[in-house]
Design a protein around this nucleic acid. Sequence first.
DNA 1: CATCGCTATATCCATTGAAACATAGCGAGC
DNA 2: GCTCGCTATGTTTCAATGGATATAGCGATG
Lengths: 116, 116
Amino acid sequence: MLNNQIKIRISNGPATAMGPGKAELLALINECGSISAAAKQMKMSYRRAWQLVDEVNKCFDQPLVASSVGGSHGGGAKLTEFGIKVLENYHALIAKSQEASVQELAFIRAHLKESV
Amino acid sequence: MLNNQIKIRISNGPATAMGPGKAELLALINECGSISAAAKQMKMSYRRAWQLVDEVNKCFDQPLVASSVGGSHGGGAKLTEFGIKVLENYHALIAKSQEASVQELAFIRAHLKESV
DNA sequence: CATCGCTATATCCATTGAAACATAGCGAGC
DNA sequence: GCTCGCTATGTTTCAATGGATATAGCGATG
């Protein structure tokens, strides 16, 4: 059992406001202090990471990621208070959802192939 | 508020065992009695619909869709008992998840743009 | 005031995914 | 035994996506 988790995404029209990938990226940005370092860890191009951040920032009524340019270390990025809160909410949402549907999940998982 | 629902998918390795699209397709197959009619309703090519069915059938230890070929009406497809059960489980899973996380969901939704 | 590393963005190209199209085959019923 | 509509696939085309690459600009710090 490695990759059959339940994946929840919250879409906003055609875009995805929050999903597994964006959540991971945001968490890493918070850890690393920069988009580029986070991207590197996810083996993702900086371009793509930046696009995701941009998209997520545009999905909400306020930015989740605050980035600064220039400075001794070239700049960086971190989550805003709001970003942290959204991320926490998302994690909680997943946890609660999984908790609430253990039965259904168990039934389905029990019948999956390759779910060794 | 038209398209910002929470979307849950259950992945099985690289493939998706069950998700919004597949669930809708399965439901339609059950209604229509054929893959092609269901595909038409979803404005999806028959080929794609068939591929999804094939994938979903392969994800589980038993088929969700039973198809028959030939006959006066050319054949058809319907859900197996198992398929019905999986679908019901999936729907229940979503319902329970949404129920369990109303708070988190409300917070996030409240801050989405275009969430008119 | 030069450096350094990161943001921000544009351009080009490879890969992928899906759509479109094409066909073979099946069998209940007329 | 012919027809008809659906399953089951192969092939070819095309568009969208993402990766690679290039470059400009920024500003704290030494």
